[in-house]
């Protein structure tokens, strides 16, 4: 019996979420007195890194068809059968959104996407997950013998558990795709919003798209990613992919700085899982202050440049 974790290396590297998924898988394996097996697209040298997070057996495969959830879910399901896995753990990202449901059907498993906790015990298998766009938490009971779970980022942490690693290969040459991948386009330079630990976000209080220089300056100074509220992206002031909130991207960074955003309930829904929230607004009655850890009541056109300067001073000290 085993727990199988699928972790994908992008451009030959693992992201933090891969180590979080392994850490989650390891603790689940311990509860079940099972071994943690990692299935990965990386080469065996890169895959060796996983030994630090409790992985006992690393299984490498090669495929050109990771973009096709029919192919990738078949590879994972067949590996799960080969290693007699009773749980399959994934990172929570765009890839797993395409895989999770397929795997649940293939394995006749219970499924939770974006789980933020481990079960108390193997016998009473319940995990929690953020629902209603982070306005509530659902406690899910997974009643099938098999479970498929993706792990929400920044929720269970990374735990180092060095293990002796054995390497194996999985032959994935027999799977064929009906979807042709033409091109992968990625924005260069900045950390994508769903993965950003530091986010600087601005709203209608900016008054004009031409005023965004001070926001970008602050983001550059911090090494943060920029975001915006829905009215801002709907007016075409900023690109759609910057829209965070209930109908945009839900984020979970360590630090979220909200500039000139009043804090409508739909906006809060997408950001209130942030660890620390700073709100800068000239209106002391702005609802966002109720959800903030730190607040600055003042004119953003004065406060934001001052904050950038203060961060520079701190970095140079």
């Amino acid at each position: 019996m085993s727990v199988l974790v699928y972790v994908e290396a992008v451009d030959g590297k693992y992201k933090k979420t891969a180590y979080e998924a392994c850490s989650y898988g390891f603790r689940l394996a311990q509860m079940n007195s099972a071994n943690l097996v990692a299935l990965t697209n990386a080469d065996s040298q890169t895959a060796s890194e996983l030994a630090s997070y409790g992985v006992k057996t690393v299984v490498c495969f090669q495929s050109e068809d990771l973009h096709d959830s029919a192919v990738l879910s078949s590879i994972i399901a067949d590996a799960a059968a080969k290693y007699v896995a009773n749980a399959v753990i994934l990172t929570d990202d765009s890839r797993s959104k395409a895989l999770l449901g397929r795997l649940a059907v293939k394995l006749d498993a219970s499924a939770v996407s974006g789980a933020s906790s481990l079960p108390e015990s193997a016998s009473e298998f319940q995990v929690s997950k953020s629902i209603f766009s982070s306005k509530a938490i659902g406690h899910y009971s997974l009643d099938s013998a098999k479970k498929v779970i993706s792990v929400a980022r920044n929720s269970v942490g990374i735990h180092e558990n060095a293990a002796d690693l054995s390497h194996e290969e999985f032959d994935a040459s027999g799977y064929t795709s009906s979807i042709e991948l033409i091109e992968v386009k990625r924005v260069k330079g900045t950390v994508p919003l769903p993965e950003a630990e530091l986010v600087v976000s601005a709203g209608r209080g900016m008054k004009d798209p031409g005023n965004w220089g001070i926001v970008e300056e602050l983001a550059d100074t911090l090494g943060a990613t920029t975001a915006c509220s829905r009215p801002v992206s709907d007016s075409g002031w900023r690109p759609h992919h910057e829209h965070v909130g209930q109908t945009g991207i839900a984020i979970k960074p360590n630090l979220y700085i909200a500039i000139g955003i009043s804090g409508a309930i739909q906006h809060l829904a997408g950001v209130n899982n942030s660890k620390t929230i700073v709100v800068i607004n000239k209106d002391p009655e702005a609802p966002f202050f109720k959800a903030a850890d730190y607040g600055v009541v003042g004119d953003l056109f004065d406060v934001v440049p001052r904050l950038s300067e203060a961060i520079k001073r701190q970095k140079n000290s």
């Binding site: 929690s128 509530a136 938490i137 659902g138 850890d293 600055v296 004119d299 904050l307 001073r313």
Partner: peptide, 30 residues
């Protein structure tokens, strides 16, 4: 085979700490 058995609310923030808009060094320190 997957059921929500119970709901709960996220932990509430303990309250906002206001920082003087003239003193951003203090915000950075915090």
């Amino acid at each position: 085979s997957t059921r929500v058995v119970r709901y709960s609310m996220p932990p509430e923030k303990s309250g906002v700490k206001l920082v003087d808009p003239e003193n951003m060094d203090e915000l950075v320190r915090l």
